[in-house]
Structure formats: structure tokens, C-alpha cells
Design a protein around this nucleic acid. Sequence first.
DNA 1: CCTATAATTTAGTCATACCTAAATTTAGAT
DNA 2: ATCTAAATTTAGGTATGACTAAATTATAGG
Lengths: 245, 245
Amino acid sequence: MQRIQMTQTYSQAFEDYLKVIHKLVRRAGRATTSEIARCLDVRPASVTGMLQKMAELEPPLVSYEKHQGAVLTEAGEVEALRVIRRHRLLELFLHEYLNYSWDEVHEEAERLEHVISDKLGARIAALLGDPDRDPHGHPIPSADLVLRPLTEFPLSQLPVGGWGIVRRVRDDEPAVLRYVGRLGLRPFAPIRLVSHVALDGTYHVLVLETGETVVLGTAVAEAIFVDHLSVPLMITNQSNAEDED
Amino acid sequence: MQRIQMTQTYSQAFEDYLKVIHKLVRRAGRATTSEIARCLDVRPASVTGMLQKMAELEPPLVSYEKHQGAVLTEAGEVEALRVIRRHRLLELFLHEYLNYSWDEVHEEAERLEHVISDKLGARIAALLGDPDRDPHGHPIPSADLVLRPLTEFPLSQLPVGGWGIVRRVRDDEPAVLRYVGRLGLRPFAPIRLVSHVALDGTYHVLVLETGETVVLGTAVAEAIFVDHLSVPLMITNQSNAEDED
DNA sequence: CCTATAATTTAGTCATACCTAAATTTAGAT
DNA sequence: ATCTAAATTTAGGTATGACTAAATTATAGG
């Protein structure tokens, strides 16, 4: 009465590579050896070795040619999305049920994502009501592994004077998350880019909900992703829609 | 602002060895190479190698001499109890919050116990109200790693005619757990050993709560642990304290 | 077009944790 | 006390997935 593992399972290392390659391919069309190495904090030579292995599995997880970087195959995409789904479900679960703040969830989920069964993933998803966003606003792939396409772009690319709504914040820097959270820059927060000082690379941002204008450096302004918001008034309070700093 | 891991951390393999050695030492005073091998489903030669490594760590986790088996050192005991606490907290958590039945929790906890942080362990313990039993009745080491001493003994050792109360059931055989659970033999269930048929090794057991007398084979009777119960009446319902089958 | 630099790959190591086969030690039966 | 069977250890090997150093390929500037 041994339980059979229906689903092929890959090493933690492979799962980490798949996640990173998925991210880099989304961002740039392909994942280069050195970018993967940087993301995983390993040496490029190690990445070359792993890409060769992943490309020679049956089925292959990546399509890889020497010096050309890698992209995910169909099978690789599926596996990557499975890991990403587990990760984001776990983040939300830790946040909702175990009192984790949004800067703490990532690190714990990084380890748990590799060991939870499909059953546990499904139970967590059910408990959370089949959610589609993690605490940082990242989309959670659906149970059938469809990932909502991303429309948002870095706050740093908002036109000066333009309104936006925060959609997500990069989750891999706890310090950034704590800082940004304290400023009220959380998913769904309406904001306006008041000005950009090219001299020192700062962005002056009005946070509608607090009425405060905050000043962000480039690193932070590039870690916050927003959508355009044409009519800011629809949201909320009285008269500060035209406040100036 | 890197987070420092205050607590020394050991490989999953070491943690598994520590758990098994802890169990065997409790049971028999020391853990032999072949018993460890059987429990972990590895070859004795592999165990020898691991015992040598664990004995030469600083601090050593086991005290080991050739051909004499191993016992845990103070440090090994602490680590073993930490893993056991995580395992049992996880089992109860899965049972209470994620709809796992008592035969499902062990397998999932086996993997999770190696990756959850102290923080997550503490949050789970708090949520559960600092429990002292897992779903199978095994004691959970306290936060300061004290393990309640065991008084219970196998049902098979109950004197014929004697009353007992189920304290715990071995958790590593899902089929046994499902079977035993269906019979009502769960922790705190009062029972009476009606008779033992030496011929075929069966035990006839009255389950007070259901009024049924069930027949158990040796394997099952040795997987159920009970304490003596002098006065069965204290517990519950009307007239079946002296029911006979 | 050619060269310097950056990116990548190859070749060879290492640690972990398992394995098999063979040698050795222990322990029980006569 | 001895011999045999069981338990244990040693020796040598494998797969993973990292590393370094050296060789190779790609690319951008002149």
C-alpha cells in the first residue's frame, strides 16, 4: 500500500534553477549563464554544468546551446510554475495564518517550497480561498498553472506628474520591504510621481492614503511596480488629489 | 543586515540519524548499527560511516565505539529533541489546521521538520497553545526540550482481564493507523484486554466507547501503547463497564 | 578587420551520503 | 575453548552539485 508519487520530482537545486530561469526569461527573453549565477549566488561554471544536465534530462527542462543562454522547455515551464505557485501560496499562508510580516515570508517559503506535497499545496490553496496574489502582489499561478500576464512596470518609469497604483514590490530584500511598507507603498496603494530629480536619482512620490510625499532612491523606485491610474479620485479621500509637496 | 542563524544547523541526514538513535536508545539503551540501518532503510556500512562522522564533529553528536553501537551525547540529545519537537508540532498543526487525518500527517512532517525555522516552529506552537501531544499521542518535547517520560507499554503486555487507556499509537504505518482509528482505538480510549489467544497471537479487546470487542493481531497489539486503568467506570457511559462480547 | 575584455565553457577537485564487496570482530553453540 | 554465523567495519566506488584555474568564444571599440 505504498503511496506512489504521481508527479516527477526534481532536486531542490533544479527547482531553484527553474525559478530563476523563469524570472530571467520573462524579463529578458533568455537567461544567461552569468545572470543565473548572480541570482543563485553560485559560480558561472556551476551554472554551465547544471544547464547541460537540465538540457539532457528526459524530458529536457531547458533548451540550451553553448554561449547562447537558456530558455525553459514546456516541461521546464510547468515545473517552474509549480514551484512558483508553492512559493507564493506559502508566503500568503505564512502571512495570513502565522503572523509573518511581508518581509519575513520569502525566506521561510524559499525552504518550504521544495518539500511540500501537492496535497499540502492544495489544502493551503483551499484554506486561502484559491488566492491569486501573494503578500507582495506577485501573481500566484492558478492550479492549472496559468500565470496572469504582468502589466505593471517600475515606479521609476512612471511619467512625472502621473498617477499610478502599486501592484507589487520585489520580495527578495527584507530591508526594502520593511522600508517600503512603512511608507505605505503596499499593493493597491494609489500614488503620484510628483517629481524626479535626475541629479541624485531620487523620486518624489505622493502616497495618496497618507497624504505624505516620500523620497525614494533609484533602487527602491525600481523595486516597486505600478500600473497607470488615470483617475485617482475614484479611490478615496477628500481634497488631497491635487496636493503639491 | 544579514540575518544570523543563531543555532547550529545539521544536514537532513544527520537529523534523521539523530531521531532514530534517540528512539533506539530510549528503547534499548543503545543504538546498534544494524538497527539504525533498518530504521533508515540504508545499508549498515553507510551507518558506520555516518556514526564515525557524527562522533568526530565538534561538539560530537554521538558517543561511538567500534562494534559497540552509539548513544547520543548531550549535544546530540538536544538536536534530536529539537527535530522531534518540530516533527510533532507539525503533525498536530497539519491535523488541526489543514485537515490531515492522523495517518497522513507523519509523511508530510518527515519532510517539513528539516526545513522550518525556529521562528515558524514557535509560531505554530503558539497557535496550537503549546501542546504536549501529537495526534498519535506521542509527547511533544517542551520548548526547553524536556520530554515527558513514558509510562505506557504495548497493549500486548496488558494482563488478560485488565483495563487500560490508550495513550499512543505508532505513527509510521499509515495502514495501521487507519485500521486502528476505525476501531476507535485512539488516545484516551479506555479498553479492556478480554483475552489473548496464544495459538494465533490474537488479542481480544473491548473498546469501551463503542462497546465492541475487536480482535487484533500481534503487530497491531504491539503498535498500541496503553497505561493501566484501575477503575474504568470513572470515564463514561451507563452500563457497559461489564459488557462481555 | 582586429584585438582586448568580458562571458562562457572545460577540466579537474571536493564534500556529502549513499552503495557493494571483502575483511574483521563478536557472540552463541557445542 | 573453539568454531561458525551474524554483525560490523574497511576499502573503494557512484551521483550531486558545488568549486578553481585554464582555455575558449563572443563582442565591442578602434
